[in-house]
Design a binder for these strands. Structure first.
Lengths: 219, 219
DNA sequence: TTATCGATATATCGCCCCGATATATCGGCA
DNA sequence: TGCCGATATATCGGGGCGATATATCGATAA
């Protein structure tokens, strides 16, 4: 799971652990806690599997790998002046390899066996949806839809008159949330379908009734 | 975390592991995966700490501890006939102890240090809200509200124009979800406040303007 | 009767993630 | 110069998860 996120960020540019954690907290942070206790082991795992590699520290000057503190205006000049002599050893930047790119795609496509982390897993994959084809995105959304629909039907079949006031309120609220999630996914599916059919129309002569297939959003 | 759920169920009646798992899946299942790999270690932990104890197998006939498969009508008679000779040993039923009751309360009251499991933690506690005093419930809801408000402000401060289309859509949807959660919690707080003031009015002479304190729902 | 099958039931394994903590180094400032 | 806070890497203990190993029980079929 973490692997996917790391590889996704390293696809953009090489980064070292600390910066990686900050970006995970920033951009995917609303999904995720990401602590060092998971990050560094994950990096070692990825390196072991040849998915990432350490950027040669001699080759890459300090400028190539972004330092965490963004230097601003005045201070930057002084900083660069003193940086002609590149000290500082500690800080290992990682770069994604060809194998890593492959693994990224594999993980992104993979149909995860819907465990407890379903929600997080979907969100993470969707956050990297730009790396998927239109079909890939649709497949991802379809699977998500199926999962939510299943959760919903299961919630409904479990009679509403179960447990005490608080349990019921909880279940009810959760059901509503699931319904909203489902609606959202349906919108995303519609949008994606529209984009797909528009693209198809552009490359092939438009069939008389091209909008037929997008009527409603069945599973 | 699991401890709280287990103790909460054992408060009602003694149960053995398998049944415990089934009930966790049924009643709290919308929260939780609960696998044997966590359940049995948790039971051992609780037993080690004296929070639960094994029900003396000699004492308790089969009927006292619910068997999982509910026997229905015809089959039940035949079953009971053959059960005069009580074979079957494996199946350890656990009972909550006085110390366990204490620990349950402690865990239920505890202000968990808001980690990744905040949502699950709140839901679990709220599911057992009937074991709290009205004040306890209010405190629980207040903390939840604070957490959600914080999440929301953090989401808003992180400019909406970040990332690609998918990331933005994700963030937006999640923000809406948080808003809905917050509204729900506010409703719960109002309800609880009303109940509390009604109870207060019943026991003490009603002050002239008793509704003053319930204007709006500030943190 | 015996074989077999699915549900019941306990338990452990390896893996991953988390929070806490240890340990450096760096840059800025008094 | 000495100190502090931010940067940076790393490990530890503990808990949860999915998979799996056993074993027993009851029912059904051969």
């Amino acid at each position: 799971m973490l692997e996917l996120a790391i590889l996704g960020l390293l696809k953009e540019q090489p980064l070292h652990g600390y910066e990686l954690k900050k970006r995970l907290g920033d951009t995917l942070g609303f999904l995720w806690g990401v602590s060092y206790g998971s990050l560094y082991p994950a990096l070692r795992r990825l390196e072991r599997d040849g998915a990432i590699e350490i950027v040669d520290p001699a080759q890459t000057s300090r400028a190539s790998v972004p330092a965490t503190g963004s230097i601003s205006g005045e201070a930057a000049a002084a900083k660069l002046r003193r940086l002609t002599k590149p000290t500082r050893r500690t800080r290992k930047a990682y770069r994604i390899t060809a194998g890593g790119e492959e693994q990224f795609t594999r993980l992104l496509i993979a149909d995860a066996p819907a465990g407890v982390d379903e929600d997080r897993d979907f969100s993470l994959k969707f956050a990297f949806a730009r790396h998927l084809s239109s079909d890939g995105r649709l497949e991802l959304l379809r699977r998500r839809r199926a999962h939510l629909a299943d959760r919903l039907s299961r919630a409904r079949s479990t009679g509403a008159a179960k447990g005490d006031r608080y349990t019921r309120s909880l279940a009810e609220h959760r059901t509503k949330s699931t319904e909203r999630d489902l609606e959202w996914v349906d919108e995303l599916i519609s949008t994606e379908r529209r984009a797909l059919s528009a693209a198809t129309e552009a490359s092939t002569p438009p069939p008389k009734a091209a909008t037929v297939a997008s009527k409603g959003v069945p599973a």
